[in-house]
């Protein structure tokens, strides 16, 4: 999806965007990463139109904003699902069988790492350690953390999210 295409599909609240850029982050180029995070919190991804606006407003070329947005793994240039599944693939979770939990999610939802289900219900993202190693394997769905998950418990957990 090109940046221009995304721009047409998302209605951007420019006064809110202005508030983020100016009031929260002082129109400061050094705060670019945090501004992008704020935009993503609001829209669940980085809409192209918002990035275009940000570029002019803050004085950073769109190419450089795009470079930052694609370098860091938390940013998504495409709309994500209503529920974000973050599966921890840190070492502690890995040796405790996180890969098998991930396989189970992939089989159930037919989405691979980084993909969104067709009904926009779930996006699957792998993360590298959320620091809850004692609870491994750990899956985080939105803000809820599930620890010590066995592969056969996955279905029941996913069912709770619409």
């Amino acid at each position: 999806m090109s940046v221009a295409q995304t721009a047409e599909t998302e209605a951007i609240d420019y006064s809110e965007l202005n508030r983020i850029i100016e009031e929260d982050y002082g129109n400061d180029q050094e705060n670019l990463i945090m501004i992008l995070q704020a935009i993503q919190r609001k829209y669940n991804y980085l809409p192209g139109a918002a990035l275009n606006y940000l570029s002019t407003k803050i004085g950073i070329p769109l190419s450089r904003i795009y470079e930052v947005a694609t370098f860091y793994s938390t940013f998504s240039l495409q709309p994500r699902g209503r529920n974000i599944i973050s599966i921890c693939l840190g070492t502690a979770c890995h040796v405790r069988g996180a890969e098998r939990v991930k396989e189970r999610i992939t089989e159930n939802l037919h989405i691979a790492d980084g993909e969104t289900s067709e009904d926009m219900r779930f996006t699957l993202e792998s993360v590298r350690c959320i620091g809850c190693c004692s609870l491994g394997p750990v899956v985080k769905i939105n803000e809820d953390t599930y620890g010590r998950i066995a592969p056969d418990e996955v279905d029941k957990i996913l069912d709770q999210y619409e």
């Binding site: 400061d28 050094e30 670019l32 990463i33 945090m34 370098f71 860091y72």
Partner: peptide, 25 residues
């Protein structure tokens, strides 16, 4: 306080400082 955005390499000092400047790490 500045927050990272999911890049392991930003733990390296020069990459971290680039990231603090709002650039790619």
């Amino acid at each position: 306080i500045s927050t990272g955005a999911g890049a392991f390499v930003c733990g390296e000092s020069t990459a971290l400082m680039a990231s603090l400047e709002g650039k790619v790490g």
